[in-house]
Design a binder for these strands. Structure first.
Length: 820
RNA sequence: GCCGGGAUGGUGGAAUUGGUAGACACACGGGACUUAAAAUCCCGAGGACUUAACUGUCCGUGCGGGUUCGACUCCCGCUCCCGGUACCA
């Protein structure tokens, strides 16, 4: 009789053994012949508390890493800390301790929790982004980007979050609100640092095609975010001026239907018109106060005012009024649009409201409503368009655009929705931007030999401006160029800067003469399997793709060494729900992983999160389900009692053969589950079936004992990726000498999967009418004869004529009949 | 509006990608063990009707059509749900 399954003791024992044996370490030895495999989960923000979302994310990745190790790969599976960020500052204010203290304490706490879960990380590769030896390279990179003109400072309308007291990138504004604190963002005109992600828009879009193993959803979201649209830029004249009014349009075929122009409130022409028009100035003022949140409400009334200026149509020379409209965005295209109310719903609504002309220039056979009643937005054939009459919309776009091009009044144009990445933040707990402001020399990048610009870690934020701005020792510095007294930049980087390149730094985390080591990149990059939440689809995952290309293009590695993309495969796991809603502190429906670990052990927690739902779907938490997972482990534990034992009774070769069939079918199925889409829930179900087969089997002879042992060993090994401690303990009790989680993954014995007799389902007219036992290589005629001899089948064959028989080998026999 | 994903028992979910729908588990019901309970073990179960009988029939993967010997799977047309995104010109 074996002892009870004692999760805590077993888990402590094996964690110690693994650590001693170094089984989780990646080998950088060039003579290591194993193929390398890089498995990575999105690194956590060290909030101090492990939540179920973490557990799920990291157990998924760990299962992949462990499986690959058992398949003989040299696996890099690192972990680290996305350690800069606002929560540390908020906690600092609350506890009156510097954010660094809080952060380092949290890291220590979370490291313990991760180890307790038995996650197979290579802790030798651990990094924390708040350490100068990490962010110095980010600063170095930034100076390179400034040199290349890819980073720049400009004054712009930016998103400002008052509660967080900082600006935000467009990607960090979710439905008009701050992604962190959920409060509405404001527009502010400020000088800020940007990185030219727009220069890479085309590459980021095109390389999406290389990401064949990414979820369609994420690819689609990135494609939308980049928002490429092709059309034309058209220059209208401005009456009584040498200036032009440029617009972007995707419908140059409707050019002859333009009846007015609309410009954004921030457009220079609008400002100029307002100079001696107080009413208009008031309207512009009003527009500037509309927060993005309000503007998001589709119901917002379209408002406008005439500027008094007139534009000159580039083809007809007609003069058309220029209006200011609150729906035109300064930040997209040129901040001005040509309005064709007959063929655009928005323009129509506006024209209708202000009594502007509507001129139809497109029609087709389905066009049966007057454009005085509603806009006709479909493609069609041009009318009322003088020399362009009769052209189809598609042709007309090309013809009109090239006409404009010849006249110097327009050209084909590709427009992106993507805008440059705003990377400066008015926060303390981040990587300092390596810039010095000198009265004489202007903005000077900090020279390489003076990097890193170290963030003083002992400052105490108060909630207002960053304490850096008042820290004289930090701010006052000599200009690196002229040596005169100058001031340091006190803004810090967006924390997405750190997370944009950590996956590359992991390949050579201690490299101190370069950002990354090209050789290490060659060995490990790109990440073979990345696992994380879908909420980063257009944040982290877009920035990281961009940054990878930047690193390549400043020469840190070549395409051959590091690849053009950082992540080959992406798995986006679903959320952990309780009572149908996301588990979160604010909802008060959290389950603390530590509680589960204390009660059942880490293995049960791991097993449940992997079994309860497919990885990409949301997982509904269930206490009963956790019990069930634990029950399964106890059942397997009990099977150990039967190992090596012979029971009284008559031996049956057929039963033993059936067990071996089950064993090897299971190995095949589970290997398949790992190789095709990581359906761990199905893999675990398969292991449960194998366990059920073993529990109903009693060995009555030596062959039976051997087969049972074979099954137990295979089961122990295959449990390794999911419940590693349990797997090792069971394997050890079975007398296996290797540590189970590094032992070779079991292989299928095809001979065991061959059956002499198989069951065929028999259908008549596609309806299942019975089953027959036949030799494995049965031919159609024999199978039919056997089926006809079966009473429950033959009764369906009376009074009918058999017209066709279909045999699907190993599966079924379908008899097609017709009334006689 | 647009883009993406989805709809299978009481529940979470399977189905070798066109071949026995409901694996595996949870919850439930019945039984065994126990003084009792917990734990554990065994049995049952898609629905309707039917039978002395787990006997047999029919229906059944959101709805309506189609292709096929055969459809959860493929095609056409809908409905609803979830996620993303939007005055993008």
């Amino acid at each position: 009789m074996s002892d009870h399954y004692e999760a805590q003791a077993i888990e402590n024992k094996w964690q110690k053994k693994w650590n001693e044996a170094g089984v989780d370490l990646a080998s950088d030895d060039p003579s290591d012949a194993r193929e390398s495999y890089y498995c990575l989960e999105m690194f956590p923000y060290p909030s101090g508390d492990l939540h179920m979302g973490h557990v799920r994310n990291y157990c998924l990745g760990d299962a992949v890493a462990r499986y690959k190790r058992m398949q003989g790969f040299n696996v890099l599976h690192p972990i680290g800390w996305d350690a800069f960020g606002l929560p540390a500052e908020n906690a600092a204010i609350k506890h009156k301790r510097p954010p660094a203290e809080w952060t380092y304490a949290n890291i220590d706490q979370m490291r313990v929790q991760f180890k307790r879960l038995g996650l197979s990380y290579d802790w030798d590769h651990e990094i924390a982004t708040c350490k100068p030896e990490y962010y110095r390279w980010e600063q170095w990179m930034f100076t390179k980007l400034v040199e290349k003109g890819l980073a720049y400072r400009k004054e712009a309308d930016v998103n400002w979050c008052e509660p967080c007291h900082t600006v935000l990138a467009n990607e960090q504004v979710v439905e008009g609100a701050c992604w962190r604190c959920d409060m509405p963002v404001e527009r502010k005109n400020l000088a800020q640092w940007f990185i030219k992600i727009t220069d890479y828009a085309e590459a980021l879009l095109n390389d999406l095609d290389k990401l064949s193993d990414w979820p369609e959803k994420v690819i689609g979201m990135q494609r939308n975010w980049i928002g490429r649209s092709t059309g034309a830029e058209v220059s209208f004249g401005v009456e009584g001026s040498d200036e032009t009014l440029d617009v972007f349009t995707t419908r140059s075929d409707t050019l002859m239907g333009v009846t007015y122009m609309a410009v954004a409130a921030g457009h220079p022409l609008a400002k100029k018109a307002a100079e001696n028009h107080p009413g208009l100035a008031l309207f512009l003022e009003e527009c500037s106060h509309i927060s993005t949140k309000e503007a998001d409400v589709a119901l917002m009334e379209k408002k406008g005012m005439a500027t008094g200026f007139h534009a000159v149509h580039p083809i007809t020379g007609e003069t058309i009024p220029i209006w200011v409209a609150n729906f035109v965005l300064m930040s997209y295209g040129t901040g001005a649009v040509m309005s064709v109310p007959a063929h655009d719903e928005r323009d129509f609504e506006f024209a209708h409201k202000y009594g502007l002309d509507i001129k139809q220039v497109i029609t087709n056979e389905t066009c049966d409503v007057s454009v005085d009643v509603e806009a006709f937005v479909e493609m069609g054939v041009l009318v009322n368009s003088s020399q362009f009459d009769g052209l189809a919309s598609d042709e007309a776009k090309a013809v009109i655009t090239s006409y404009l091009d010849r006249e110097g009044k327009g050209r084909e144009q590709v427009q992106y929705r993507l805008r440059d990445w705003l990377v400066s933040r008015q926060r303390y707990w981040g990587a300092p931007i390596p810039i010095i402001h000198c009265d004489d020399c202007g903005m000077v990048t900090v020279p390489e030999d003076q990097l890193p610009v170290i963030l003083p870690e002992h400052l105490q934020p108060t909630g207002g401006a960053s304490p850096l701005t008042e820290h004289e020792a930090f701010v006052n510095v000599d200009c690196p160029t002229c040596g005169k007294a100058a001031k340091r930049e006190t803004d810090t980087f967006d924390t997405f800067m750190e997370s944009s390149w950590y996956m590359n730094r992991y390949t050579s985390p201690r490299c101190d003469d370069a950002m990354v080591d090209a050789k290490a990149m060659q060995k490990w990059s790109p990440v073979d399997q990345y696992v994380g939440g879908v909420e980063h689809a257009v944040l982290h995952l877009l920035y990281a793709r961009f940054y990878h290309k930047l690193m390549r293009d400043v020469g840190l590695f070549t395409s051959e060494e590091g690849g053009d993309e950082p992540f080959k495969n992406l798995l986006t796991q679903g959320m952990v729900l309780k009572d149908g809603i996301k588990m979160s502190k604010s909802k008060g429906n959290t389950v603390n992983p530590n509680t589960i670990i204390e009660k059942y052990g880490a293995d049960t927690a791991r097993l449940f999160t992997l079994f309860a739902a497919p990885p990409e779907k949301d997982l509904e938490w269930s206490d009963a389900g956790v019990e069930g997972a634990n029950r399964f482990l106890k059942r397997v534990w009990k099977l150990l009692d039967k190992a090596g034992k012979q029971f009284p009774g008559e031996a049956s070769a057929a039963t033993t053969k059936k067990l071996r069939f089950d064993i090897h079918t299971t190995i095949s199925r589970i290997t398949h589950a790992f190789e095709h889409g990581f359906s761990f829930n199905v893999a675990i179900a398969g292991l449960m079936e194998l366990s059920n087969s073993l529990s109903t089997f009693d060995a009555h002879d030596e062959e039976g004992v051997v087969a049972f042992d074979e099954g137990m060993q295979a089961l122990a090994k295959m449990l390794g990726p999911f419940v590693p401690h349990f797997s090792c303990e069971v394997a050890e009790k079975l007398g296996m000498t290797d540590i189970a989680v590094v032992a070779a993954w079991p292989t299928v014995d095809e001979a065991a999967r061959v059956q002499d007799e198989i069951t065929l389902a028999v259908q008549v007219q596609g309806k299942r009418r019975g089953e027959i036992l036949v030799p494995k290589d049965v031919d159609q005629d024999t199978a039919l004869a056997i089926a006809q001899a079966n009473i429950s089948i033959s009764k369906w064959l009376d009074d009918v004529q058999i017209v066709k028989v279909i045999l699907v080998p190993g599966r079924l026999l379908n008899i097609v009949v017709r009334p006689a």
